[in-house]
Design a protein around this nucleic acid. Structure first.
Lengths: 217, 217
DNA sequence: CGGCGGCTTGAAGGACGTCAAGATTAGTGG
DNA sequence: CCACTAATCTTGACGTCCTTCAAGCCGCCG
C-alpha cells in the first residue's frame, strides 16, 4: 500500500493487520451507522458500498476491487456512512483504525498516506457529478474498472463484472435498461464484445475517447 | 472554527492567520495547478470554486459563505485542484498550511479538525451525485444556502444570492433556463418569493420537504 | 421440466436541454 | 436626471435523451 514507508514501520503494520473472510455474496462487511473501527483492504472479490435512503431506495456509491481500501470515509463522524456488501466471495485485510491513528502520529509517512487516500476518494465522485451522457458514463465505468484491474496486473483486454446490471445502472444514475442498450450499441459499433458479465475490449482507444470527458474532469 | 482547542493553541493560531482582501468580483483567490500553500476562511462575501475542462467549459464545484473554509481539497497533490473566484467583495483569513500541519502534529485537536473538515467536503458532493429532479435540486440548493447562513446568525426567512443563475445552474448540472423556470414555479406555488437575486421563504416546510430526499442522502 | 431472477428489447411518454426572442436590471456617460 | 448599452433573467416552442412500462428471452437451480 504505501511506497514511502520503511521496514520497521511495515513490521508495526503487520501487528495491526488481520485477515478476514470469506464473506459470501450479499453479506455485509459493515453497515451504515455502525461504530467506525477499522478500514479494509480487499484481497480478493468485489465489494460495493451503498446507502438506503428514507424511502428504502438503494444508492450505490462505489465498487472496490482487489488492492483497494474500503471504509475510509467513516473517519469523520466515527461511524460508517454507508453499507459495504460483498458481491461475490470476498477476502479482506482488516486494519484497526485506532492503532493506525496513533501510529500515524509517530510515523509521518502514514499520516500523509491517509490524507492521500482520503483526498483520492473525494475525486472519484466526479464520475457521477458531471452531466454526462449515458454513453460517456458507461464507457468511463468500463475504462475505470479495466484500468484498476490493470494496475493490479490483470488482463487489459477483458474483464469480468461481478455486479448485476442494476447495480451498475444505479451507480451511474441510469436505468438498468439504458445500460443494457448502451452495451448493446457499443458491441454493434465494435467497441466491445459482451456476453453476460464478460466484457472484451475490441477497440479500447475508441472507448477511452468516449470516457475522456468524464475521467479527465 | 475549532471548539475543542484551548487558549494557548489559539494564540499560536493567531500567528498563522493573515487577513487578506478585499478581492473584487471576478478576481481569483487561487488558480488550478498553483502550488498549494494555504487554506482560507471566508470573513465576508462569497467564493465559488470551479474547474475549466479541456474543452474550455466551466464546472462549478461549490460556493463558500462567510465562516466557511476554502482550499482544503488542495492538500493531497500539493497544488490546488480548482480555481477559487470571488463573486462579490470578498474578505478572507489566510492560514499557511505548512505551519498548520506542523502544529497539527503537536496538538491533536487540530489534526482531528482537519480530518473532520476534509471528510465533510466529501459529503457535500452528494447534492450533485444523486439522480434528482430539477425541483429537488433547486430546493436543496436554497435550503442548503439558507441553513448555512442561519448557522452564522443571518436571517432565516430571506437571503441574497450573490451568484448569477448560470452559476447556480452549472453547479446543479441544469440549464440556466430550467433554474429560472423552477424558481418561477416555486413562486407560483407559494413556496418562495423571488425578485432577482433576493429570495424570501414563504413556505419553508414545503421547500424543505422537497429538499429532504437530496440532503438526507 | 418448470420456475425464477437477471438480462434484453420495443414502444410511449416525460423531463430537461437547446434555440430564439423579449424583458428587466445595472452600469455608464452625457 | 436621462438615455444607452450590455448583462442577466425570463418565457415560449421544439427536439432529444432517457425513463417507464410491458413483454419476451436466457441461464441456472431446484
Amino acid at each position: 500500500m504505501p511506497s514511502g514507508v520503511d521496514k520497521p514501520a511495515l513490521q508495526v503494520l503487520h501487528c495491526l493487520v488481520e485477515h478476514v473472510g470469506p464473506f459470501r455474496e450479499g453479506e455485509h462487511l459493515f453497515r451504515a451507522h455502525e461504530a467506525f473501527g477499522a478500514i479494509f483492504a480487499v484481497r480478493g472479490g468485489t465489494v460495493k458500498t451503498r446507502l438506503i435512503d428514507s424511502l428504502g431506495r438503494e444508492q450505490v456509491l462505489g465498487f472496490y476491487l482487489p488492492g483497494e481500501m474500503v471504509g475510509l470515509n467513516g473517519i469523520h463522524p466515527d461511524h460508517y456512512p454507508c453499507d459495504a456488501v460483498a458481491l461475490d466471495s470476498v477476502y479482506l485485510c482488516r486494519f484497526s483504525f485506532r492503532a493506525l491513528e496513533t501510529l500515524a502520529a509517530r510515523i509521518p509517512g502514514i499520516q500523509q498516506q491517509l490524507f492521500r487516500l482520503l483526498s483520492k476518494d473525494i475525486g472519484v465522485a466526479s464520475l457521477l457529478a458531471g452531466d454526462f451522457s449515458a454513453d460517456e458514463r458507461v464507457a468511463a465505468f468500463l475504462v475505470s474498472i479495466a484500468d484498476r484491474f490493470a494496475a493490479r496486473g490483470f488482463s487489459t483486454s477483458a474483464l469480468h463484472l461481478s455486479m448485476p446490471r442494476s447495480d451498475i445502472a444505479n451507480y451511474l444514475r441510469l436505468a438498468a435498461e439504458t445500460v443494457s442498450r448502451v452495451l448493446r450499441r457499443f458491441q454493434d459499433q465494435g467497441l466491445i464484445s459482451v456476453a453476460g458479465r464478460e466484457v472484451k475490449f475490441t477497440a479500447p482507444q475508441a472507448l477511452r475517447a468516449l470516457a475522456r470527458n468524464v475521467l479527465t474532469t
